[in-house]
Computed example of a mutant assay.
Amino acid sequence: MRITQGTFSFLPDLTDEQITKQVQYCIDNGWAVNLEFTDDPHPRNTYWEMWGHPMFDIEDAAGVMMELNECRKVYGDRYIRLSAFDASHGWESVKLSFIVNRPSEEEPGFRLDRQEAAGRNIRYTTSPYVAAKPEGQRYG
């Protein structure tokens, strides 16, 4: 199973050269770029851990790529996401977001849990297989 989240989710993972071009596009449009990481990529888990502060005044993609490489050194066994925000309207709107790093091992995916509810209703919940392990021990 391959986790699909973000703008380029159904394409093969971007190379660092392709990521650099996307970052430069964001910078050229005046968007702030930030990096986040998690070991629980559940679709409803929108609160990933931030790597440093958002990069508001950066002028060159090389600075973002340096931070991405540092993040990979520390959290290379987790998912890392790059997001770009546009604040030109007075509030921040996500303009671009995609995964730039995945665990090196197999991505275990999700199971669909079925629950019988009152009056013949059926509810479904997605549960990540990896969440059965404690945080920090889910990959590797």
Rank of each mutant, 00 (worst) to 15 (best):
C71I: 10
Y139C: 03
T126N: 06
R114N: 07
L68N: 03
M50D: 14
G136Y: 00
I27R: 07
R72V: 07
M55C: 05
D28I: 02
A117T: 13
Q115I: 15
Y139H: 05
N29Q: 14
T125I: 04
Y79H: 03
Q137E: 13
Y25E: 11
A32T: 03
W51E: 11
L14G: 11
G6Q: 00
L11T: 13
W91E: 12
Y139E: 05
Y129E: 00
A87W: 13
S127D: 11
N29F: 03
F85N: 06
R138S: 02
Y75K: 09
F37D: 04
R2T: 14
P134N: 06
K133C: 01
D13R: 11
T4C: 15
R111H: 10
V64C: 02
V74H: 05
K133T: 06
A61Q: 09
M1I: 08
D60S: 06
R120W: 11
D13H: 13
P128M: 02
D39I: 03
E116H: 09
P134H: 02
T125V: 10
N101G: 00
E67F: 05
P41Y: 02
G140C: 12
I19E: 11
S127V: 15
D28N: 08
P108S: 01
D86Q: 09
W51Q: 05
A61P: 03
T126G: 07
N121L: 12
S83A: 12
L82Y: 00
R44H: 15
G30D: 03
E49C: 14
G109D: 07
T126D: 04
Q18V: 08
A61G: 05
T15A: 08
W91A: 12
I80M: 05
T15V: 10
P128R: 03
L82A: 02
M50L: 15
R72E: 06
R2S: 08
D77G: 02
V64N: 08
S83Q: 09
E36N: 04
S88K: 15
R72S: 05
P108W: 04
R111A: 12
V74K: 12
Y129T: 05
P54A: 13
Y129A: 03
R138A: 03
G63W: 12
E92K: 07
A132D: 12
S93L: 12
E135P: 10
P103S: 07
R78A: 03
Y47F: 14
W51A: 08
V64E: 05
F56P: 01
P12S: 15
C26V: 00
F56L: 13
V100Y: 06
Q5E: 14
F98N: 06
I58A: 06
G6T: 10
S88E: 11
R78V: 06
R2W: 07
T4R: 15
